[in-house]
Design a protein around this nucleic acid. Structure first.
Lengths: 232, 232
DNA sequence: CGGGCTTTGTGAACGTGTGCACGAATGCCT
DNA sequence: AGGCATTCGTGCACACGTTCACAAAGCCCG
Protein backbone atom coordinates (compact mmCIF):
# COMPACT_ATOMS: atom_id res chain seq x y z
CA UNK A 1 0.00 0.00 0.00
CA UNK A 2 1.84 3.08 -1.24
CA UNK A 3 -0.29 5.82 0.30
CA UNK A 4 1.50 8.93 -0.92
CA UNK A 5 5.26 9.34 -1.17
CA UNK A 6 5.71 13.03 -0.90
CA UNK A 7 2.99 15.57 -1.25
CA UNK A 8 3.54 16.94 -4.73
CA UNK A 9 6.91 16.53 -6.35
CA UNK A 10 7.52 18.98 -9.12
CA UNK A 11 9.81 17.80 -11.95
CA UNK A 12 13.20 19.50 -12.12
CA UNK A 13 12.57 20.74 -15.62
CA UNK A 14 9.42 22.46 -14.44
CA UNK A 15 11.11 23.99 -11.40
CA UNK A 16 13.71 25.56 -13.65
CA UNK A 17 11.02 27.15 -15.79
CA UNK A 18 8.82 28.51 -13.01
CA UNK A 19 11.14 31.45 -12.29
CA UNK A 20 10.90 32.45 -15.94
CA UNK A 21 7.11 32.36 -15.90
CA UNK A 22 7.18 34.31 -12.67
CA UNK A 23 9.27 37.11 -14.09
CA UNK A 24 7.09 37.39 -17.19
CA UNK A 25 3.90 37.35 -15.15
CA UNK A 26 5.31 40.11 -12.97
CA UNK A 27 6.01 42.23 -16.04
CA UNK A 28 2.53 41.58 -17.40
CA UNK A 29 0.98 42.56 -14.08
CA UNK A 30 2.95 45.83 -14.17
CA UNK A 31 1.49 46.50 -17.61
CA UNK A 32 -2.00 46.06 -16.27
CA UNK A 33 -2.67 42.64 -17.74
CA UNK A 34 -4.71 40.56 -15.33
CA UNK A 35 -5.55 37.49 -17.36
CA UNK A 36 -3.26 35.47 -19.61
CA UNK A 37 -3.61 32.34 -21.74
CA UNK A 38 -1.11 29.50 -21.78
CA UNK A 39 -0.48 30.33 -25.42
CA UNK A 40 0.50 33.92 -24.72
CA UNK A 41 2.63 32.99 -21.73
CA UNK A 42 4.32 30.30 -23.81
CA UNK A 43 5.12 32.81 -26.53
CA UNK A 44 6.69 35.21 -24.02
CA UNK A 45 8.65 32.43 -22.37
CA UNK A 46 9.82 30.90 -25.62
CA UNK A 47 8.29 27.49 -24.98
CA UNK A 48 5.42 25.26 -26.07
CA UNK A 49 1.91 26.10 -24.81
CA UNK A 50 1.22 22.52 -23.72
CA UNK A 51 4.39 22.63 -21.64
CA UNK A 52 3.19 25.76 -19.89
CA UNK A 53 -0.13 24.15 -19.04
CA UNK A 54 1.52 20.98 -17.80
CA UNK A 55 4.01 22.96 -15.73
CA UNK A 56 1.27 25.03 -14.14
CA UNK A 57 -0.86 21.97 -13.55
CA UNK A 58 1.73 20.74 -11.04
CA UNK A 59 0.81 23.72 -8.87
CA UNK A 60 -2.87 22.80 -9.00
CA UNK A 61 -5.73 23.74 -11.27
CA UNK A 62 -5.49 27.48 -11.14
CA UNK A 63 -6.69 28.26 -14.65
CA UNK A 64 -10.16 28.88 -15.97
CA UNK A 65 -11.11 27.02 -19.13
CA UNK A 66 -12.09 29.25 -21.97
CA UNK A 67 -10.43 32.20 -20.25
CA UNK A 68 -6.89 31.61 -19.06
CA UNK A 69 -5.00 32.28 -15.85
CA UNK A 70 -5.48 35.16 -13.47
CA UNK A 71 -2.07 36.81 -13.43
CA UNK A 72 -2.04 38.01 -9.84
CA UNK A 73 -3.17 34.71 -8.41
CA UNK A 74 -0.69 32.77 -10.52
CA UNK A 75 2.14 35.00 -9.34
CA UNK A 76 1.10 34.29 -5.79
CA UNK A 77 0.97 30.53 -6.31
CA UNK A 78 4.33 30.33 -8.07
CA UNK A 79 5.96 32.47 -5.42
CA UNK A 80 4.53 30.24 -2.74
CA UNK A 81 5.75 27.08 -4.45
CA UNK A 82 9.23 28.49 -4.98
CA UNK A 83 9.41 29.56 -1.36
CA UNK A 84 9.58 33.25 -2.25
CA UNK A 85 7.08 34.33 0.37
CA UNK A 86 9.96 35.49 2.50
CA UNK A 87 13.55 36.63 1.97
CA UNK A 88 16.47 34.22 1.73
CA UNK A 89 19.63 35.97 2.88
CA UNK A 90 22.78 34.79 1.13
CA UNK A 91 26.43 34.92 2.12
CA UNK A 92 29.15 35.40 -0.48
CA UNK A 93 32.54 33.75 -0.07
CA UNK A 94 35.28 35.51 -1.99
CA UNK A 95 35.64 39.26 -2.41
CA UNK A 96 37.59 39.17 -5.66
CA UNK A 97 36.50 40.41 -9.03
CA UNK A 98 33.35 38.33 -9.12
CA UNK A 99 32.43 38.65 -5.45
CA UNK A 100 32.60 42.40 -5.77
CA UNK A 101 30.40 42.42 -8.86
CA UNK A 102 27.84 40.19 -7.15
CA UNK A 103 27.74 42.25 -3.97
CA UNK A 104 27.52 45.46 -5.99
CA UNK A 105 24.75 44.15 -8.18
CA UNK A 106 21.60 45.48 -6.57
CA UNK A 107 19.30 42.94 -8.18
CA UNK A 108 20.05 40.47 -5.41
CA UNK A 109 18.25 42.16 -2.58
CA UNK A 110 15.40 43.37 -4.77
CA UNK A 111 14.59 39.85 -5.77
CA UNK A 112 14.42 38.53 -2.24
CA UNK A 113 18.02 37.45 -1.71
CA UNK A 114 19.68 40.15 0.42
CA UNK A 115 23.43 39.86 0.92
CA UNK A 116 23.85 38.99 4.58
CA UNK A 117 27.60 39.18 4.32
CA UNK A 118 30.74 38.90 2.21
CA UNK A 119 33.78 37.06 3.53
CA UNK A 120 37.32 36.47 2.31
CA UNK A 121 40.48 34.80 3.57
CA UNK A 122 42.70 37.69 2.56
CA UNK A 123 43.13 40.07 5.55
CA UNK A 124 43.90 42.86 3.06
CA UNK A 125 40.35 42.67 1.75
CA UNK A 126 38.70 42.48 5.15
CA UNK A 127 37.21 45.83 6.12
CA UNK A 128 36.72 47.15 2.62
CA UNK A 129 33.13 47.96 1.73
CA UNK A 130 31.29 46.29 -1.17
CA UNK A 131 27.85 47.38 -2.21
CA UNK A 132 27.10 48.62 1.27
CA UNK A 133 28.43 45.51 2.98
CA UNK A 134 31.71 45.40 4.86
CA UNK A 135 33.92 42.43 3.96
CA UNK A 136 34.57 40.22 6.95
CA UNK A 137 37.08 37.46 7.60
CA UNK A 138 36.07 33.97 6.62
CA UNK A 139 36.42 32.81 10.24
CA UNK A 140 33.31 34.83 11.01
CA UNK A 141 31.29 32.73 8.58
CA UNK A 142 29.58 30.52 11.23
CA UNK A 143 28.53 33.57 13.17
CA UNK A 144 27.08 35.31 10.11
CA UNK A 145 25.24 32.20 8.99
CA UNK A 146 23.73 31.62 12.39
CA UNK A 147 22.78 35.13 13.39
CA UNK A 148 21.33 36.00 9.99
CA UNK A 149 19.71 32.57 9.48
CA UNK A 150 21.48 32.05 6.14
CA UNK A 151 20.65 28.92 4.14
CA UNK A 152 22.24 29.81 0.81
CA UNK A 153 25.94 30.33 0.19
CA UNK A 154 27.65 31.67 -2.92
CA UNK A 155 31.14 30.47 -3.83
CA UNK A 156 32.96 33.22 -5.73
CA UNK A 157 36.55 32.22 -5.01
CA UNK A 158 39.38 31.19 -7.33
CA UNK A 159 39.18 27.51 -8.33
CA UNK A 160 41.76 26.23 -5.84
CA UNK A 161 39.91 27.75 -2.88
CA UNK A 162 36.41 26.66 -3.87
CA UNK A 163 36.34 23.24 -2.19
CA UNK A 164 37.51 24.75 1.09
CA UNK A 165 34.93 27.50 0.81
CA UNK A 166 32.20 24.93 0.23
CA UNK A 167 33.27 22.90 3.24
CA UNK A 168 33.27 25.96 5.46
CA UNK A 169 29.82 26.90 4.23
CA UNK A 170 28.49 23.42 4.95
CA UNK A 171 30.15 23.34 8.36
CA UNK A 172 28.58 26.70 9.15
CA UNK A 173 25.14 25.30 8.41
CA UNK A 174 24.40 26.34 4.84
CA UNK A 175 22.33 23.78 2.90
CA UNK A 176 22.34 25.24 -0.62
CA UNK A 177 25.30 26.47 -2.65
CA UNK A 178 25.58 28.50 -5.82
CA UNK A 179 29.02 27.79 -7.24
CA UNK A 180 30.75 30.14 -9.68
CA UNK A 181 34.13 28.44 -9.49
CA UNK A 182 35.01 26.08 -12.37
CA UNK A 183 35.30 23.13 -10.02
CA UNK A 184 33.16 20.12 -9.15
CA UNK A 185 32.37 20.52 -5.46
CA UNK A 186 32.26 17.49 -3.18
CA UNK A 187 29.56 18.00 -0.59
CA UNK A 188 27.20 15.84 1.49
CA UNK A 189 24.19 14.49 -0.37
CA UNK A 190 21.73 16.69 1.48
CA UNK A 191 23.35 19.86 0.16
CA UNK A 192 21.89 21.29 -3.02
CA UNK A 193 24.51 22.67 -5.40
CA UNK A 194 24.01 24.64 -8.59
CA UNK A 195 26.86 25.61 -10.84
CA UNK A 196 27.39 28.63 -13.06
CA UNK A 197 30.43 28.23 -15.24
CA UNK A 198 31.26 30.80 -17.89
CA UNK A 199 33.92 28.72 -19.56
CA UNK A 200 31.52 25.81 -19.97
CA UNK A 201 28.89 28.02 -21.57
CA UNK A 202 31.37 29.54 -23.98
CA UNK A 203 32.75 26.15 -24.90
CA UNK A 204 29.26 24.87 -25.66
CA UNK A 205 28.78 27.83 -27.98
CA UNK A 206 32.18 27.10 -29.47
CA UNK A 207 31.03 23.56 -30.23
CA UNK A 208 28.04 24.83 -32.16
CA UNK A 209 30.13 27.38 -34.04
CA UNK A 210 32.65 24.75 -34.97
CA UNK A 211 29.80 22.54 -36.11
CA UNK A 212 28.32 25.25 -38.32
CA UNK A 213 31.75 25.91 -39.79
CA UNK A 214 32.34 22.28 -40.76
CA UNK A 215 28.88 21.90 -42.30
CA UNK A 216 29.29 24.78 -44.73
CA UNK A 217 27.54 23.64 -47.90
CA UNK A 218 24.37 22.24 -46.36
CA UNK A 219 21.12 22.86 -48.31
CA UNK A 220 18.15 23.40 -45.98
CA UNK A 221 20.07 25.62 -43.60
CA UNK A 222 18.55 28.93 -44.63
CA UNK A 223 19.27 31.21 -41.70
CA UNK A 224 16.40 33.48 -42.63
CA UNK A 225 12.98 32.76 -41.13
CA UNK A 226 11.16 34.89 -38.63
CA UNK A 227 12.51 35.65 -35.22
CA UNK A 228 11.51 33.24 -32.53
CA UNK A 229 12.20 33.03 -28.84
CA UNK A 230 15.16 30.90 -27.96
CA UNK A 231 15.03 28.15 -25.39
CA UNK A 232 17.18 28.20 -22.28
CA UNK B 1 18.14 6.36 -49.50
CA UNK B 2 19.18 7.96 -46.21
CA UNK B 3 22.94 7.68 -46.49
CA UNK B 4 24.03 9.54 -43.38
CA UNK B 5 22.26 12.57 -41.95
CA UNK B 6 25.07 14.43 -40.32
CA UNK B 7 28.45 12.98 -39.56
CA UNK B 8 28.31 12.39 -35.82
CA UNK B 9 25.77 14.30 -33.82
CA UNK B 10 26.71 14.55 -30.18
CA UNK B 11 23.79 14.72 -27.71
CA UNK B 12 23.33 18.07 -25.96
CA UNK B 13 23.75 16.51 -22.55
CA UNK B 14 27.11 15.13 -23.60
CA UNK B 15 28.26 18.42 -25.11
CA UNK B 16 27.56 20.15 -21.83
CA UNK B 17 29.73 17.65 -19.96
CA UNK B 18 32.71 17.61 -22.31
CA UNK B 19 34.05 20.95 -21.03
CA UNK B 20 34.03 19.53 -17.51
CA UNK B 21 35.96 16.45 -18.55
CA UNK B 22 38.35 18.68 -20.46
CA UNK B 23 39.15 20.82 -17.45
CA UNK B 24 39.70 17.81 -15.23
CA UNK B 25 41.89 16.11 -17.80
CA UNK B 26 43.95 19.26 -18.10
CA UNK B 27 44.50 19.31 -14.35
CA UNK B 28 45.45 15.66 -14.36
CA UNK B 29 47.91 16.24 -17.17
CA UNK B 30 49.50 19.04 -15.15
CA UNK B 31 49.92 16.63 -12.27
CA UNK B 32 51.77 14.20 -14.50
CA UNK B 33 48.95 11.68 -14.91
CA UNK B 34 48.99 10.29 -18.43
CA UNK B 35 46.41 7.53 -18.23
CA UNK B 36 42.98 7.60 -16.61
CA UNK B 37 40.09 5.18 -16.25
CA UNK B 38 36.46 6.09 -16.84
CA UNK B 39 35.84 5.32 -13.17
CA UNK B 40 38.41 7.82 -11.95
CA UNK B 41 37.32 10.49 -14.38
CA UNK B 42 33.71 9.91 -13.36
CA UNK B 43 34.63 10.36 -9.71
CA UNK B 44 36.38 13.65 -10.41
CA UNK B 45 33.53 14.89 -12.57
CA UNK B 46 30.84 13.81 -10.14
CA UNK B 47 29.04 11.54 -12.59
CA UNK B 48 28.44 7.88 -13.35
CA UNK B 49 31.30 5.91 -14.96
CA UNK B 50 29.05 4.44 -17.64
CA UNK B 51 28.03 7.96 -18.59
CA UNK B 52 31.65 8.96 -19.01
CA UNK B 53 32.30 6.02 -21.30
CA UNK B 54 29.19 6.67 -23.37
CA UNK B 55 30.03 10.35 -23.64
CA UNK B 56 33.56 9.63 -24.77
CA UNK B 57 32.37 6.96 -27.17
CA UNK B 58 30.67 9.69 -29.23
CA UNK B 59 34.12 11.05 -30.01
CA UNK B 60 35.30 7.65 -31.22
CA UNK B 61 36.98 4.70 -29.59
CA UNK B 62 39.89 6.42 -27.96
CA UNK B 63 40.25 4.19 -24.91
CA UNK B 64 42.27 1.04 -24.40
CA UNK B 65 40.44 -1.85 -22.75
CA UNK B 66 42.03 -3.02 -19.57
CA UNK B 67 43.97 0.25 -19.32
CA UNK B 68 41.92 3.39 -19.69
CA UNK B 69 42.28 6.59 -21.69
CA UNK B 70 45.49 8.36 -22.58
CA UNK B 71 45.05 11.80 -21.03
CA UNK B 72 46.92 13.87 -23.59
CA UNK B 73 45.22 12.29 -26.55
CA UNK B 74 41.80 12.62 -24.97
CA UNK B 75 42.42 16.31 -24.28
CA UNK B 76 43.32 16.75 -27.91
CA UNK B 77 40.21 14.96 -29.16
CA UNK B 78 37.82 16.84 -26.89
CA UNK B 79 39.39 20.16 -27.81
CA UNK B 80 39.03 19.30 -31.45
CA UNK B 81 35.39 18.31 -31.07
CA UNK B 82 34.56 21.46 -29.12
CA UNK B 83 36.26 23.61 -31.71
CA UNK B 84 38.91 24.79 -29.27
CA UNK B 85 41.79 24.36 -31.68
CA UNK B 86 41.73 28.07 -32.26
CA UNK B 87 40.60 31.20 -30.40
CA UNK B 88 37.06 32.51 -30.53
CA UNK B 89 37.07 36.27 -29.95
CA UNK B 90 33.99 37.58 -28.16
CA UNK B 91 32.41 41.00 -28.02
CA UNK B 92 30.67 42.24 -24.89
CA UNK B 93 27.64 44.52 -25.11
CA UNK B 94 27.12 46.56 -21.96
CA UNK B 95 29.84 48.17 -19.87
CA UNK B 96 27.92 48.25 -16.63
CA UNK B 97 28.64 46.38 -13.45
CA UNK B 98 28.61 42.98 -15.09
CA UNK B 99 30.28 43.96 -18.34
CA UNK B 100 33.15 45.45 -16.36
CA UNK B 101 33.55 42.32 -14.27
CA UNK B 102 33.54 40.13 -17.36
CA UNK B 103 36.07 42.26 -19.22
CA UNK B 104 38.26 42.44 -16.15
CA UNK B 105 38.10 38.73 -15.52
CA UNK B 106 41.27 37.40 -17.12
CA UNK B 107 40.03 33.83 -17.43
CA UNK B 108 38.36 34.71 -20.71
CA UNK B 109 41.43 35.15 -22.85
CA UNK B 110 43.33 32.36 -21.17
CA UNK B 111 40.65 29.88 -22.07
CA UNK B 112 40.59 30.80 -25.73
CA UNK B 113 37.93 33.51 -25.74
CA UNK B 114 39.78 36.86 -25.97
CA UNK B 115 37.68 39.99 -25.57
CA UNK B 116 37.69 41.61 -28.99
CA UNK B 117 35.78 44.59 -27.74
CA UNK B 118 33.36 46.09 -25.26
CA UNK B 119 30.58 48.40 -26.42
CA UNK B 120 27.91 50.49 -24.73
CA UNK B 121 25.19 52.95 -25.74
CA UNK B 122 26.10 55.43 -23.03
CA UNK B 123 28.56 58.02 -24.43
CA UNK B 124 29.76 58.64 -20.88
CA UNK B 125 31.17 55.12 -20.73
CA UNK B 126 32.77 55.22 -24.18
CA UNK B 127 36.49 55.75 -23.93
CA UNK B 128 36.94 54.33 -20.45
CA UNK B 129 39.25 51.34 -20.25
CA UNK B 130 38.15 47.95 -18.97
CA UNK B 131 40.58 45.09 -18.48
CA UNK B 132 42.87 46.49 -21.10
CA UNK B 133 40.09 47.15 -23.59
CA UNK B 134 38.74 50.58 -24.42
CA UNK B 135 34.96 50.81 -24.39
CA UNK B 136 33.57 51.80 -27.78
CA UNK B 137 30.19 53.01 -28.91
CA UNK B 138 27.65 50.38 -29.86
CA UNK B 139 27.45 51.81 -33.40
CA UNK B 140 30.94 50.44 -33.95
CA UNK B 141 29.70 46.91 -33.31
CA UNK B 142 29.50 45.83 -36.98
CA UNK B 143 33.02 47.03 -37.59
CA UNK B 144 34.42 45.20 -34.57
CA UNK B 145 32.59 42.00 -35.44
CA UNK B 146 33.82 42.05 -39.00
CA UNK B 147 37.41 43.11 -38.56
CA UNK B 148 38.02 40.79 -35.63
CA UNK B 149 35.98 37.90 -37.08
CA UNK B 150 33.76 37.65 -34.00
CA UNK B 151 31.16 34.87 -33.88
CA UNK B 152 30.18 35.06 -30.22
CA UNK B 153 28.49 37.97 -28.51
CA UNK B 154 27.85 38.51 -24.80
CA UNK B 155 24.78 40.44 -23.66
CA UNK B 156 25.55 42.16 -20.36
CA UNK B 157 23.02 44.97 -20.49
CA UNK B 158 20.09 45.83 -18.23
CA UNK B 159 16.97 43.79 -19.05
CA UNK B 160 15.19 46.45 -21.09
CA UNK B 161 18.16 46.86 -23.44
CA UNK B 162 18.87 43.18 -23.96
CA UNK B 163 16.60 42.53 -26.93
CA UNK B 164 18.01 45.51 -28.78
CA UNK B 165 21.55 44.38 -27.99
CA UNK B 166 20.78 40.92 -29.33
CA UNK B 167 19.33 42.31 -32.54
CA UNK B 168 22.36 44.49 -33.10
CA UNK B 169 24.65 41.54 -32.51
CA UNK B 170 22.74 39.41 -35.00
CA UNK B 171 22.67 42.23 -37.54
CA UNK B 172 26.42 42.62 -37.15
CA UNK B 173 26.93 38.96 -38.01
CA UNK B 174 27.26 37.20 -34.66
CA UNK B 175 25.80 33.68 -34.65
CA UNK B 176 26.08 32.70 -30.96
CA UNK B 177 24.97 34.68 -27.94
CA UNK B 178 25.63 34.30 -24.24
CA UNK B 179 22.86 36.18 -22.45
CA UNK B 180 23.24 37.43 -18.88
CA UNK B 181 20.11 39.56 -18.91
CA UNK B 182 17.01 38.08 -17.26
CA UNK B 183 15.05 38.19 -20.50
CA UNK B 184 13.99 35.66 -23.12
CA UNK B 185 15.66 36.81 -26.33
CA UNK B 186 13.86 36.52 -29.64
CA UNK B 187 16.39 35.71 -32.35
CA UNK B 188 16.43 33.86 -35.67
CA UNK B 189 16.47 30.10 -35.42
CA UNK B 190 20.01 29.79 -36.69
CA UNK B 191 21.39 31.75 -33.75
CA UNK B 192 22.51 29.74 -30.76
CA UNK B 193 21.61 31.34 -27.43
CA UNK B 194 22.65 30.31 -23.95
CA UNK B 195 21.33 32.00 -20.86
CA UNK B 196 22.94 32.63 -17.50
CA UNK B 197 20.43 33.94 -15.00
CA UNK B 198 21.39 34.47 -11.39
CA UNK B 199 17.87 35.04 -10.18
CA UNK B 200 16.68 31.79 -11.72
CA UNK B 201 19.45 29.82 -10.05
CA UNK B 202 18.75 31.36 -6.66
CA UNK B 203 15.04 30.73 -7.02
CA UNK B 204 15.67 27.09 -7.82
CA UNK B 205 17.73 26.84 -4.64
CA UNK B 206 14.96 28.62 -2.80
CA UNK B 207 12.49 25.99 -3.99
CA UNK B 208 14.62 23.21 -2.54
CA UNK B 209 15.12 25.07 0.74
CA UNK B 210 11.41 25.67 1.03
CA UNK B 211 10.84 22.00 0.32
CA UNK B 212 13.26 20.87 3.02
CA UNK B 213 11.62 23.26 5.45
CA UNK B 214 8.13 21.89 4.86
CA UNK B 215 9.29 18.27 5.13
CA UNK B 216 10.77 18.69 8.62
CA UNK B 217 10.03 15.45 10.44
CA UNK B 218 11.00 12.99 7.70
CA UNK B 219 12.77 9.80 8.83
CA UNK B 220 15.29 8.60 6.24
CA UNK B 221 16.74 12.04 5.68
CA UNK B 222 19.98 11.55 7.58
CA UNK B 223 22.19 14.33 6.26
CA UNK B 224 25.32 12.48 7.30
CA UNK B 225 26.91 10.11 4.78
CA UNK B 226 30.19 10.63 3.05
CA UNK B 227 30.86 13.57 0.81
CA UNK B 228 30.04 13.03 -2.78
CA UNK B 229 30.48 15.16 -5.86
CA UNK B 230 27.42 17.12 -6.81
CA UNK B 231 25.98 17.10 -10.27
CA UNK B 232 25.71 20.23 -12.35
C1' DC C 1 51.70 -18.87 -24.54
C1' DG C 2 47.59 -19.34 -21.99
C1' DG C 3 44.76 -17.93 -18.08
C1' DG C 4 43.09 -14.38 -15.37
C1' DC C 5 42.31 -9.63 -14.34
C1' DT C 6 41.01 -5.10 -15.75
C1' DT C 7 38.51 -1.78 -18.29
C1' DT C 8 36.28 -0.33 -22.44
C1' DG C 9 32.24 -0.02 -25.60
C1' DT C 10 27.48 -0.80 -26.18
C1' DG C 11 22.79 -3.25 -26.26
C1' DA C 12 18.83 -3.05 -23.57
C1' DA C 13 15.83 -1.52 -19.86
C1' DC C 14 14.23 2.18 -17.45
C1' DG C 15 13.08 6.92 -16.23
C1' DT C 16 12.33 11.70 -17.40
C1' DG C 17 10.78 15.28 -20.46
C1' DT C 18 8.17 16.90 -24.58
C1' DG C 19 4.35 17.66 -27.63
C1' DC C 20 0.08 16.27 -29.76
C1' DA C 21 -4.61 15.80 -29.59
C1' DC C 22 -8.82 15.77 -27.52
C1' DG C 23 -12.40 15.74 -23.84
C1' DA C 24 -14.14 18.88 -20.33
C1' DA C 25 -15.32 23.18 -18.58
C1' DT C 26 -16.38 27.90 -19.00
C1' DG C 27 -17.99 32.44 -20.91
C1' DC C 28 -20.46 34.88 -24.45
C1' DC C 29 -23.90 35.85 -27.73
C1' DT C 30 -28.26 35.39 -29.70
C1' DA D 1 -31.75 28.60 -22.57
C1' DG D 2 -29.02 26.69 -25.96
C1' DG D 3 -25.28 26.68 -29.06
C1' DC D 4 -20.67 28.06 -30.10
C1' DA D 5 -16.02 29.53 -29.53
C1' DT D 6 -12.27 29.37 -26.49
C1' DT D 7 -8.90 27.49 -23.46
C1' DC D 8 -7.58 24.41 -19.78
C1' DG D 9 -6.09 19.79 -18.08
C1' DT D 10 -4.23 15.46 -19.25
C1' DG D 11 -3.72 10.66 -21.49
C1' DC D 12 -0.68 8.88 -24.74
C1' DA D 13 3.12 8.24 -27.78
C1' DC D 14 7.55 9.43 -28.73
C1' DA D 15 12.28 11.27 -28.01
C1' DC D 16 16.01 11.86 -25.09
C1' DG D 17 18.98 10.74 -21.27
C1' DT D 18 20.71 7.56 -17.71
C1' DT D 19 22.18 3.32 -15.78
C1' DC D 20 23.00 -1.55 -15.72
C1' DA D 21 25.19 -5.47 -17.21
C1' DC D 22 28.04 -8.04 -20.05
C1' DA D 23 30.79 -9.46 -24.06
C1' DA D 24 35.01 -8.01 -26.33
C1' DA D 25 39.61 -6.62 -26.03
C1' DG D 26 43.68 -5.72 -24.22
C1' DC D 27 47.67 -6.27 -20.48
C1' DC D 28 50.40 -8.88 -17.19
C1' DC D 29 52.44 -12.70 -15.16
C1' DG D 30 53.86 -17.17 -14.42
Amino acid sequence: MPPERNRRRIPDATVSRLPVYLRILGEQADEGVDSISSERLAELAGVNAAKVRKDLSYLGSYGTRGVGYEVGYLVYQIRRELGLTHDWPVVIVGAGNLGQALAGYGGFGERGFPVAGVVDVDPAKVGTVLGGVRVRHIDELPQIVQTKRVNIGVVATPPHAAQDAAERLVAAGVTSILNFAPVVLAVPRAIEVRKVDLAVELQILSYHEQRKASLHAVPGAGAGAVSRPASA
